[in-house]
Design a binder for these strands. Sequence first.
DNA 1: CGTTCGATTGAGGAAGATCAATTAATGTGG
DNA 2: CCACATTAATTGATCTTCCTCAATCGAACG
Lengths: 260, 260
Amino acid sequence: MFETSFSPTHAAAAEEACLAARATPMAQPRLGLPQPVAARIEQALELLARTISPQRRVVHEGDRIYRAGERFVNLYVINSGLIKLINLAADGREQVAGVKFRGDWLGLDGIADGEFACDAIAMDTGEVWVLGYDKLLKACAREPSLMNLLHKAMSRQIASSRDSLMSICTLPADARVADFLRFLAESLAERGLRTDQILLRMTRAEIGNYLGMTLESVSRALSRLARDKVIAFAGKGRRDVQIPDIGALSSFIQRCLASA
Amino acid sequence: MFETSFSPTHAAAAEEACLAARATPMAQPRLGLPQPVAARIEQALELLARTISPQRRVVHEGDRIYRAGERFVNLYVINSGLIKLINLAADGREQVAGVKFRGDWLGLDGIADGEFACDAIAMDTGEVWVLGYDKLLKACAREPSLMNLLHKAMSRQIASSRDSLMSICTLPADARVADFLRFLAESLAERGLRTDQILLRMTRAEIGNYLGMTLESVSRALSRLARDKVIAFAGKGRRDVQIPDIGALSSFIQRCLASA
DNA sequence: CGTTCGATTGAGGAAGATCAATTAATGTGG
DNA sequence: CCACATTAATTGATCTTCCTCAATCGAACG
């Protein structure tokens, strides 16, 4: 139970773990839910741009948007790219605590204590919008819909981290990996990106760390998923994953639960 | 960089798993941190009482403050008693997702989608304050410190659920149980309650569900903790736990990590 | 072209789950 | 208040899952 695994909070992990081909903007609704979520994200970004014209910051793979312990001044909203959160314990343990996508907020954990609780690291080239917290609050006072946006973002993070916890606590290893892929694919679909082929931007070790298992267990789970034709590997490396049918991932998870 | 470790979230688990003897109000600082946290909680409740004189609702063991799927209208703040949160998955899996204490907010997960994502159940007789969300927002507009309170409450939940995830993902079973007790004792200490003897208000099955292990594993972990004199059982049942030294729990956890 | 890093796969072992039996505590009805 | 039923907890014996260790392979990089 302790490995270099990475366990996904589906909502959060999906959003960040994988980076779909950034090309392929907004085709058709592919899942069933993409439309409303996509619209929500677009409206949110549009509102932010209009009401507080935030500073834009381009980030590259490996850049730290902020670090644990750093003084909290700004919140961040992802416009593009994938960001992972790394949580540090006092005794040195560290864990990937989430993956974030376009439209997600970063740094909300810093409000309480005035300093950030984890590192936020770009997995990709992308752009984050920098929102001074004070300035944001002033804007919220003028524009209630902005306040509503902020509250919903926080609320969503609270709810989705509970879902992650439940996946990790109640699913066997294979199902956790499948659920992680499902989360990833769903997050991408919600943002109008293609989900039939996605590029994992995390190593097996990171995925395992996130999911509470070893890298070997992640590898074996992926091999089994491929053997069962639930996923397929594209390209040469084993980082391009094809997911012909997201529903098949859910079936796989249920099969794992049933056989236990 | 990432290892296969998984660590439990101390903060969240402690808040709910155990119930200290409610008698023994506010003696002395016992840990080192209680004072500031206790003061923060008192000030928060005082501010709420003064600015929006919330409706007060007495709850008894087993009462549901709200249920998953119910329409979100109110937020709740615990004045006394212990509340557990139960998360439900679509396929029927359920999990204890948290334990909440005096000063904690409930229902924040409902803001995003307009309905609650889990059940909140009293483990104890207690009192919750009911805050109409709309009314609260209006009061926040008049009183910025109230808004600050709300934001910090949400932020704290985000940060502490990450810590919980880490505990569960990076600690072996025995250490998870120890960490849970530590969380519990610390939460009680922060609220000025005695921590040398606490009454668990959850069954072994509930604790195990919360920590991602079986009830037998919880039982064995507690037995080992007692054999190592880190805890002791008082009274007849095995639900009264004495914790002479909270530091010994941390040492125990480190010992578990070292031996692996 | 060799080095390095990530991934895969196998073999063996350990942590924890499962199954099962026993004991203790709580509650019920007589 | 006592038999009885019920639920919770403990403990042991086994079995499964997953971790650990190790070897191999492929890709990427200098």
